[in-house]
Design a protein around this nucleic acid. Structure first.
Length: 915
RNA sequence: GCGCGAUUAGCUCAGGGGUAGAGCAUCACCUUGACACGGUGGGGGUCGUAGGUUCAAAUCCUACAUCGCGCACCA
């Protein structure tokens, strides 16, 4: 058996080999001493423990395309990568492992030892995602990779904290915060996700306390609540002051059923009389709104929960130690027993969930550090007046809205993995200071130390236990990755800050984007980036967001292994309209998951591969001689020019899907389907050597320029073909990815009139070919054998003369023979098509059927007349003729003539067939 | 409740006042000298619904419907 050589492109080794070579040659390194225009992006740092998902693929491919394109435009590019320590996520993972393997909690092992374990874990498992980004082809400057817990980077965090503390923007206070009972930490508002929940609305009744024996001894007031388990913490009930039903109750007391206590009835305008019974139970310790009502009315605050969401001693012995959801049932049961539960309705409400731990958060009063945001006005203005440009622009509104209602940021977390707050308390005063409210720069004198470095007599001090919110480190990312905090701006920063583009998901517009703008302005006096491109969300075929928990997110690495990174990149880009969501289609074929969009990408890569192979099969160098170019070569080169123009303009607007579409349409639809097919004659043994040479030259030109254009999207295969085809020129960089785009038109030396004439003629030929193929197919002639066409160019040839492109016509149509016969007199019933180059006859032996042909032509005539009717109607409309733009009317008139001619001609053809 | 977005062929999506488009899928034909991960041709759409503006609306405007996403202290 002979060995079969695969004609298909095998991406695997090709991709990894090129990637290694690029890295080794320093192609990705940002040059701070360069002289070109600077272009920079900082990567949104993925979690150090993260695994690549399709969202990352979308996001980083866009960045890679921007970076690669910028390099080819001669810019000095820095794409700065790194990872984020992801406080809660990482710590939970290690805690989980600890629990599973050693049956211990982090407290069992102690802070120091636990942190060591986290670092170990990070060394072992961290950075997987970096390897995955490399496999995708990302051209990041890995020599500058950063991690938010790096020592230099950490010093930045402390410095920023100290600055803000001294400025009075950071303070500590006892406040209602979002508490995660699973992670045992406070969370910022942004880390809480509201989810609709099917729950119950419990109607219960409290007894009104009789005053000095007056009033009805049996008066009850009905209250609706979703959280009966907190009633032990109720210290009042509230009604709307305007609510006539309850007006007389205000100032009286009701009896809390358990633990039994008399609690006051207060009036508050926030109460909606329409909701439930119009009466609210007030639990100041466990609800933000209740807290405010409590403060206003001087109500007692009773916390009935432990930090982990179980109930504490204040709930009474029956409830102590019980989980909050069990306690809910139990409280309802108990009310029932007491005859105080009126009814229970099904009810859907929204409950805040911890983003990371995915459990309902508990509003809880606790001592936390807060930040009043700096530079809010400047940041708001920067986006409002497009100093920072958002794409799509609609996110501006969201941003402005949030900035307008901005709340102080709870920055402390009761975690260990993260940047510990740089605050020390004098040992003997520590307990007192830790409990002090409203602690700020003015408060504690010499007993408080806030500094980047620990105090020199550290042994006399106790450090604050809390760490900072991970986002408190991320907001410095654009500049803290470039310079150290104690030094002048580094050469890297001087050259590459502010960055050019930021590519990120709209989900983190508040978490990250807004805060970076403020931080950049506050500490660098410069906005951190010029453009922000918000990507869409990657969804599955059913429109659901891809997520690990749904299990609907395929592993990009599996896809890459099967189809290649270039295919995946191309697939994602082709369906990534500006900021709109992407549906990642998955179909199932015989139990195997197929990704149609990626298949398309792979097929495209394969097409590219084979088109290049075809070039390699033609021997020798081409010689570019403008005067020897065929009309087909001129045509494809003109289209190449147009492609480059269209690409440039689509890049301006970040229209990545359009860019991918342009590449695809040009290469497959124009170059392969038409040009390569039409050029085959030039390689026949008896072909004119000048034609052959110029055709090869045209092929080379197109391939070269096309590879330059496609490199950012499909870097690996483009590089491979650039190499295989030997397109590197003397004195040019080693790699395609370093090669500069050429901007000069490929047809610069050719007379525009010649180009125009060639394109007109080629267009006519191609259209006629389509008609001829059509005719063939209509008569069921699939094979190219034994098909003969006769062309009667009688006045129909585009240049007015005889038709001289029969060879190409024959090749394109797939015919055995094509002859030109002016004024050909066909037998009756010979199938005919009316085309741009004349009448085309398809004589069929034994198949001549006058009736059939008449019917076919009649059908066509009907279509033509339909069009003609439409055009006629339009032109008969006076309003149209007088009010539509001249150009539109002119075009319509032209169309009228065309359809009329066609109709006449078809009419004659039918007539000639006889009745 | 307010705001934003989407709704175009079976699927994934372009188009954005002037003749409804692509890829996939489907059907028919084709082992034509790069590619069957290919070639050729066909079928398939009253552009979510109802109004309005206009000579002309898939496109602009207004409502509504469905889906999605933000924001909001309705227990």
């Amino acid at each position: 058996m002979t060995k079969e050589i695969s004609t298909g492109y095998q991406p695997g080794d090709v991709e990894t080999q090129w990637y290694d070579r690029w890295v080794k040659s320093g192609c990705f390194r940002g040059n701070e001493n360069g002289e070109g225009e600077a272009y920079s992006i900082v990567i949104p740092p993925p979690n150090v423990t993260g695994i690549l998902h399709l969202g990352h693929v979308l996001n980083t491919t866009i960045q890679d395309i921007l970076a690669r394109r910028a390099r080819m435009e001669g810019k000095d590019v820095l794409w700065l990568p790194g990872t984020d320590h992801a406080g809660i996520a990482t710590q939970s993972k290690v805690e989980q492992k600890l629990r599973k393997e050693e049956k211990k909690t982090r407290r069992d092992v102690g802070r120091e030892a636990f942190l060591e374990k986290v670092w170990d874990w990070k060394e072992e498992h961290g950075g997987i995602i970096i390897q995955q980004l490399k496999r995708l082809g990302c051209s990041c400057d890995w020599s500058r990779e950063r991690f938010t817990m790096d020592e230099d980077y950490s010093r930045w965090i402390s410095k920023i904290f100290v600055d803000l503390f001294e400025e009075g923007l950071i303070y500590r206070g006892k406040r209602m915060v979002n508490w995660c009972p699973k992670s045992l930490t406070a969370l910022s508002d942004e880390e809480v996700i509201m989810k609709p929940q099917k729950s119950k609305l419990y109607y219960m009744r409290y007894k009104v306390v009789a005053e000095n024996g007056e009033g009805s001894p049996d008066r009850w007031v009905e209250i609706a609540t979703t959280r009966p388990e907190t009633l032990m913490g109720d210290t009042g009930i509230a009604v709307n002051p305007k609510d006539e039903r309850y007006g007389d109750l205000v100032g009286k007391k009701v009896l809390r059923p358990f633990p039994e206590a008399e609690i006051p009835v207060v009036a508050d305008e926030h109460i909606d009389p329409e909701f439930g019974t119009g009466v609210l139970k007030v639990t100041p310790a466990h609800d933000k709104a209740d807290f405010e009502i409590g403060v206003k009315n001087n109500l007692e605050i009773i916390d009935v929960f432990n930090p982990d969401g179980t109930l504490n001693e204040h709930a009474g012995p029956e409830f102590e130690g019980m989980d909050r959801f069990e306690a809910r049932k139990k409280a309802a049961e108990k009310l029932e027993e007491m005859g105080q539960l009126v009814k229970v309705d099904d009810y859907e409400n929204k409950v805040g969930f911890s983003e990371r731990a995915d459990v309902p958060i508990e509003p809880r009063i606790s001592m936390q550090w807060f930040l009043k945001y700096p530079c809010v006005e400047e940041a708001t203005a920067a986006v409002a007046n497009d100093e920072i440009r958002f794409r799509p622009e609609r996110w501006k509104k969201t941003f402005t809205h949030w900035m307008g209602g901005i709340q102080d940021w709870c920055i402390s977390r009761q975690l260990w993995w993260g940047h510990q707050i740089p605050v020390w308390y004098r040992k003997e005063k520590a307990e007192e200071l830790k409990g002090r409210e409203s602690l700020d720069a003015t408060g504690a004198g010499n007993d408080l130390y806030v500094g980047i470095d620990p105090p020199s007599d550290e042994e006399n001090w106790v450090r604050d236990d809390d760490v900072l919110d991970t986002w408190f480190s991320s907001w410095l990312w654009p500049f803290a990755t470039m310079s150290n905090s104690d030094e002048e701006p580094s050469p890297t920063e001087k050259r590459f800050y502010a960055t050019t583009d930021l590519v990120t998901a709209p989900e983190i517009i508040f978490f990250w984007v807004a805060r970076m703008i403020m931080a950049g302005y506050r500490w660098r006096g410069k906005l951190p980036f010029k453009n922000v491109y918000f990507t869409g969300i990657v969804r599955d075929g059913r429109g659901r967001k891809m997520s690990k928990s749904l299990g609907n997110s395929p592993d990009p690495l599996d896809i890459i292994a099967e189809y290649g990174a270039d295919a995946l990149r191309f697939a994602v880009m082709k369906t990534a309209p500006l900021g709109a969501d992407i549906r990642f289609d998955i179909t199932n074929e015989g139990g195997k998951e197929i990704y149609p969009q990626v298949v398309e990408g792979r097929n495209f890569a394969n097409k590219l591969w084979n088109a290049a192979r075809y070039r390699q099969m033609q021997e020798g160098e081409g010689t570019f001689d403008a005067s020897a170019l065929s009309i087909y070569s001129i045509d494809i080169l003109a289209k190449l020019d147009q492609l480059e123009k269209d690409m440039a303009s689509a890049y301006e607007d970040y229209r990545f899907n359009e860019l991918a579409q342009l590449l695809y349409d040009f290469f497959w639809g124009q170059y392969c389907s038409w040009f390569l097919e039409s050029s085959k004659g030039a390689f026949a043994p008896d072909a004119d050597p000048a034609l052959r040479g110029s055709t090869v030259a045209a092929m080379d030109l197109v391939l070269k320029r096309f590879l330059l254009q496609s490199q950012p999207f499909m870097p690996h295969i483009s590089e491979e073909l650039w190499d295989n085809l030997g397109y590197r020129e003397e004195g040019c960089p080693e790699f395609l990815m370093q090669t500069q785009l050429q901007t000069e038109s490929v047809l610069a030396g050719v007379d525009p009139a010649v180009i125009n004439a060639a394109q007109t003629k080629v267009k006519a030929i191609y259209e006629s070919v389509s008609r001829a193929r059509n005719l063939k197919a209509e008569y069921g002639l699939g094979s190219n054998r034994s098909v003969k066409f006769i062309i009667d160019p009688n006045g129909g040839a585009p240049d007015g003369g005889a038709f001289d492109e029969t060879a190409v016509f024959q090749q394109l149509v797939g015919a055995a023979e094509v002859v030109v016969e002016p004024s050909f007199e066909a037998e009756k019933g010979v199938p005919t098509a009316l085309t741009e180059i004349g009448k085309i006859y398809l004589p069929l032996e034994g198949l001549i059927d006058v009736d059939a042909e008449r019917e076919r032509l009649s059908k066509e005539l009907a279509k033509v007349e339909d069009e003609l009717k439409k055009v006629n109607a339009k032109l008969a409309n006076e309003n149209f003729v007088s009010r539509a733009p001249e150009a539109v009317v002119g075009e319509m008139k032209e169309r009228q003539v065309q359809w009329q001619d066609k109709s006449d001609e078809l009419g004659r053809m039918i007539e000639s067939l006889g009745a």
